[in-house]
């Protein structure tokens, strides 16, 4: 019973939602909007669930004195500070904005900027002309990299000006993005879309049910 009810709900709503896409009638559209609104109700529950799970996890860590348990206190300091300032005074409060601009912004930007370092090390390791295909990938990558920055055009126009390509590295990069990149991407997107449809049918028909967990 614990499994049958969600499976029936999944089947009924799956089929109904598909058909609302083919019917412009107001009944069908109202139903569609209604179901979407129900889905929105889940968000506040997710917030409660998130807070509870987070508190549980870190309380357990502190209680059991697991490795680096001291950092769990920092989680509580962060949560309490932002809730105490943000809930009564709103996000436009100066202190809240200060925390946002001087704590969250630099921390997020730091994590994002790590990508520059990781891209360099990954490129250094991955682009080796081991085979013909790898060499092709290497040359393409070099052209796109140079086409992405103005210095690429400068070098191209100085060193490779004898080539019959007028638009330089940026033109070559644009051609690669518009043609080989787009064709390969479309192939992958088609495969992924068919995979999504197939997976959705398996879910609607109740063949794929691992996500329901245990219990009969």
């Amino acid at each position: 019973m614990r499994r049958q009810v969600p499976l029936i709900l999944c089947f009924v709503f799956g089929i109904v939602m598909i058909f609302t896409q083919f019917s412009p009638h107001s009944v069908s559209q109202t139903l569609y909007q209604e179901v979407i609104s129900w889905a929105l109700i889940i968000s506040p529950f997710a917030l409660v669930l998130a807070t509870t799970t987070l508190i549980q996890t870190h309380v357990t860590r502190i209680r059991r004195r697991t490795e680096h348990w001291q950092y769990s206190f920092l989680v509580f300091v962060g949560i309490i500070t932002m809730v105490v300032i943000g809930v009564p005074f709103g996000p436009q409060n100066q202190v809240f904005e200060w925390f946002y601009t001087h704590v969250q912004v630099p921390m997020d930007a730091t994590m994002f900027s790590l990508l520059a370092f990781f891209i360099a090390s990954a490129a250094y390791r991955a682009f080796r002309a081991r085979t013909f295909e790898a060499s092709l990938l290497l040359i393409t990558a070099l052209i796109v990299m140079m086409g992405n920055v103005p210095v690429g055009d400068l070098i191209w126009n100085t060193v490779l000006s004898w080539l019959p390509l007028e638009d330089g590295a940026s033109g070559a990069r644009q051609w690669i993005l518009n043609n080989p990149n787009l064709s390969a991407r479309r192939g992958i997107i088609l495969g992924v879309s068919l995979g999504v449809i197939s997976q959705s049918i398996r879910i609607i028909l109740g063949i794929e049910r691992t996500y329901l967990g245990g219990g009969d």
Binding site: I42, A46, L47, L49, A50, T53, T210, Y211, L212, G213, G214
Partner: peptide
Amino acid sequence: RDPIVTNVVREVVRTSYLD
């Protein structure tokens, strides 16, 4: 990254261990 995913995943893994 998602609290709902966390709870569903717990169920999925628990079921696998039970099985």
